Amino acid sequence: MKILYLTDVFPPHCGGSGWSVYFFARALREQGHEVDFISLDGISRRYDDFEVSAYEVNHSKAPFWGNYQRDKNELPEIARSANSRFGRYDVLHAHHKLSAIVLGMAAPEKRWFVTLRDYWPICFCGQSMYRIGRTCDLYDFSRCRDAENFWQGLAAPIFYTSLETRLRERRALIKNANKLFCISHHLRDQFLPFYSSEQMQVLPNIAEATDLPQVSDLPERFLLYVGRLERNKGVQLLPEIMQTSKVSLPLLLVGEGSLQTELEHEFHERNVNARFLGFREHPEMLAILSRSDAILFPSLWPEPLGRVLIEAGMMNKPSIAFSHPGGHHDVIQNNINGLLVPSVKDFADAVVELAGSSDLRQRLGNEGRKIYEVKFTPQAVVPRLLEEYNH
């Protein structure tokens, strides 16, 4: 089977969603299928013998107008150009927001599929979350996390009708896909008012261990955070959590983001032993994860899934996360393979509990590995994907 994947990002320089696409493609190739890529990150390349053709998309910071210009001018032009390549493929599959919009605009006659990895068809900023941390169920753009300063927030109601119209247009673009894959049950449930349950299928991300490099200068024991250093990830809570726990283990943070300077100051003020390792390529990140005691996952938004939680289970490592709604419940079962907590104080208590008990870490980690093998390996997921491709 000849398959074309359309994606917004792709390895080696990308986050977890790009790696998820890569592992699906690698698993399909191992079964004898041919997979090519169109990426919207602007860099054509070969990676692991995959051919990646790229288009560059303008990610304007101008509120409303920049995105409007992109959706009305750039993406339709990319759709027209990409459409000329579709003829040689049996299956087309878009894996992110912009690539799904492009594929929907192209309206291909082939079988085509979309993977929904966040809330973009129903939430303009894709996070379904108010700035104060409460889940957004009214799509009140004046309080949306996308309103990063006062005037944008003030202006949002003026554009409300336009934004609602654009969300309806987005949803309409993918309504004719043969199947909409949602990466978690929580994400699927958010789309049920707009798409039929028959059109949607829960198909989680998969993870595989690559050859792990040697990573020097790591402590003998440490706790680990992996992710963007941004407020929706809850990373700003870690200084308080670590100080409250009084655990002496160092906290290592892998990732980049706008909060790093603020966090460095906060950890210093609270006398918390924290080290920022910056962005690390995926194999190196996994190597660091494999040597950690536990993963701290303080995310505040309703995570669509949580790739690092899957990878923690793959590496026999327990995780701590908040218990609010989100796709991470598909990965973590409380006191089975991790700990789910309702508050910062409880999060700190869970850190104490895990740091102080090797037996608990081993029990939760071993169960995490079992859950990974049942739910998140290529062997568990890819046959379901191929069944839909061949349906």
Rank of each mutant, 00 (worst) to 15 (best):
V341I: 02
E148F: 05
H185L: 00
G368F: 07
V9H: 14
A106C: 10
M129W: 12
E353H: 08
V202I: 03
D48Y: 08
A207P: 08
R280K: 12
P383Q: 09
G338K: 05
S20E: 06
Y47Q: 03
G126W: 15
R275E: 14
L364C: 08
G104E: 05
N176C: 00
Y130V: 00
H96E: 14
E284F: 08
E77M: 10
E164Y: 04
S216N: 15
L300Y: 05
I158H: 11
E198V: 00
L339V: 12
V382A: 05
Y89W: 07
E266P: 00
D36L: 01
L212W: 14
D90R: 02
G153L: 09
Q199L: 02
D293C: 10
S258V: 11
D330M: 01
D346A: 01
F279Y: 15
Q243E: 15
L40F: 13
A177M: 03
P318E: 13
I101G: 01
E264K: 11
L249K: 09
H13C: 00
K233C: 06
N176S: 11
S290V: 04
I183H: 03
K233Y: 11
Q379C: 00
F141Y: 15
I43T: 10
D349Y: 03
V35F: 11
Q214L: 13
W19Y: 15
P157L: 05
V35C: 08
P204G: 08
Q31P: 04
A287Q: 09
R363E: 12
G327D: 05
A177E: 06
D36M: 02
P304D: 12
L237F: 14
Y225C: 04
V35S: 08
D330G: 01
P318A: 10
K345M: 01
L4A: 06
V308W: 11
N232F: 08
N335T: 01
H185S: 09
P108L: 06
L385W: 15
N149G: 00
G32D: 13
S39A: 14
R131I: 04
A312E: 12
F322E: 05
I371P: 04
L289Y: 15
N83T: 01
L138I: 07
F37H: 07
S258K: 11
S245D: 10
L354V: 04
A107N: 14
F50R: 07
A348T: 05
E208H: 03
G87A: 10
P239I: 03
V341S: 02
L223Y: 13
K175D: 10
F267R: 08
H95R: 06
K317W: 14
P11I: 01
L339G: 06
W151M: 07
D90H: 09
F113D: 10
R384T: 02
N271G: 03
D349L: 04
E262Y: 05
E34F: 03
P193K: 13
L386F: 11
S196W: 06
L253M: 13
F276V: 02
E169G: 00
P11A: 03
V247M: 13
G234R: 11
L212Q: 13
S358I: 12
L386T: 04
R145K: 10
N176F: 02
I183L: 05
H96L: 07
Y195P: 03
